[in-house]
């Protein structure tokens, strides 16, 4: 994950704590989405950015996941996201991102 983004996530987690703060992802691919979820929960596995060795414990969801999708206005979801459900590998992305909330 981009270093600038890691820094902002770290600052925000410090400010708000990890109880009421969640991360919503829009990754194009399972591995990269999983990597982002891992970075904000367990720390940056690539040891490149500020979150290397910093487990913030934030919960991350992909916007495709039911937990998010079901709470969004269906019309807005349809306009903004639905087309990409036809394009990307939804199941693989969801399965990968979910792993980092359970572990």
């Amino acid at each position: 994950m981009d270093m600038g983004i890691q820094q902002r996530v770290m600052d925000l987690a410090e400010k708000y704590g990890n109880e009421d703060l969640i991360v919503v992802l829009g990754g194009a691919e399972a591995e990269a989405s999983g990597l982002a979820a891992e970075t904000v929960s367990k720390g940056d596995p690539t040891f490149a950015g500020p979150l290397a060795g910093v487990p913030l414990g934030l919960k991350a969801y992909h916007v495709f996941e039911e937990e998010i999708k079901n709470e969004v206005d269906p019309q807005v979801y349809d306009d903004q996201v639905s087309m990409m459900e036809m394009v990307l590998d939804v199941d693989a992305i969801i399965n990968e991102v979910r792993t980092y909330r359970e572990g």
């Binding site: 902002r8 009421d20 991360v23 829009g26």
Partner: peptide, 9 residues
């Protein structure tokens, strides 16, 4: 009521 960080692609 939650605070959300969005990381799109």
């Amino acid at each position: 009521g939650k605070k959300v960080i969005i990381i799109g692609d």
